[in-house]
């Protein structure tokens, strides 16, 4: 069972276009999937779930769509806060530093994080206004500010300066809609992740699809850069 699963929620726009609906309708339909997947992951025993909700590059989308997304996210956060609390899910928001994020939304993020901070069930990290490179740059800045001598910098030490340093490495990334890209997502943490690319679009993605992905993961042979056990012959 993967400890940390991350989802890149791709395909909302295409889902809407195939139905001749505005792109915003696709985002709205994504809400159901999000809740479904959170529940499925929790029930399956996943300890860490990360969702890529909004990237630093997404600010380049049309203004109206961004505005709509902000309002939608705020509504979703407020609507499901009691459920998340009751389910024992600890929520936090990765990124969310841009001043373009409406103040009320940022306050709601803070409120939800405060509310669920004591929960010990699954940890849900929502990457909102997130960029993997930006996090690494921030970590480097923080490292330099702390005055660590260059020789002492190790991978472990560097990781301690990333946002939410308690987050373990991602074991499995699910990217829906068949796209096969990383898109600047949690670059440091996905170093050894297995990737699964279901063809289904995110609004159509459901708990059974999620479980299929977990199943695929379990049959992968993870080697972390080493060699497969019991190979024939001597690799050296």
């Amino acid at each position: 069972m993967p400890r940390h699963v991350a989802c890149v929620m791709d395909g909302n726009g295409r889902w809407a276009q195939r139905r001749s609906l505005p792109r915003t309708a696709g985002h709205r339909a994504a809400e159901t999937t999000v809740i479904d997947i959170i529940e499925a992951a929790r029930a399956a025993g996943v300890e860490w779930l990360s969702l890529y909700a909004f990237s630093t590059e997404n600010w380049n989308r049309p203004g109206a769509e961004v505005d709509y997304l902000m309002r939608l996210v705020r509504r979703v956060v407020r609507k499901h806060a009691p459920l998340l609390l009751a389910r024992g899910i600890r929520c936090r928001f990765l990124g969310a530093a841009d001043p373009r994020i409406p103040r009320e939304l940022a306050q709601d993020f803070d409120a939800l994080a405060t509310l669920t901070a004591g929960n010990r069930g699954m940890t849900l990290t929502v990457a909102f206004d997130h960029g993997g490179r930006r996090d690494i740059v921030e970590a480097a800045r923080s490292l330099i500010r702390s005055g660590t001598p260059a020789d002492e910098v190790t991978e472990r030490l560097f990781a301690d300066h990333l946002p939410f340093p308690d987050t373990p490495d991602v074991d499995l990334v699910i990217r829906t809609s068949g796209e096969q890209r990383i898109s600047n997502f949690m670059l440091w943490q996905v170093a050894y992740a297995e990737w699964v690319f279901p063809d289904v679009l995110w609004p159509d993605f459901r708990a059974p699809d999620f479980l299929t992905c977990l199943h695929i993961y379990r049959h992968r042979d993870r080697r972390f850069g080493g060699v497969p056990p019991r190979t024939n012959g001597d690799p050296s």
Partner: peptide, 9 residues
């Protein structure tokens, strides 16, 4: 925490 919940509700 109670205050945060109240805010969200």
């Amino acid at each position: 925490r109670a205050s945060a919940l109240l805010r969200l509700l």
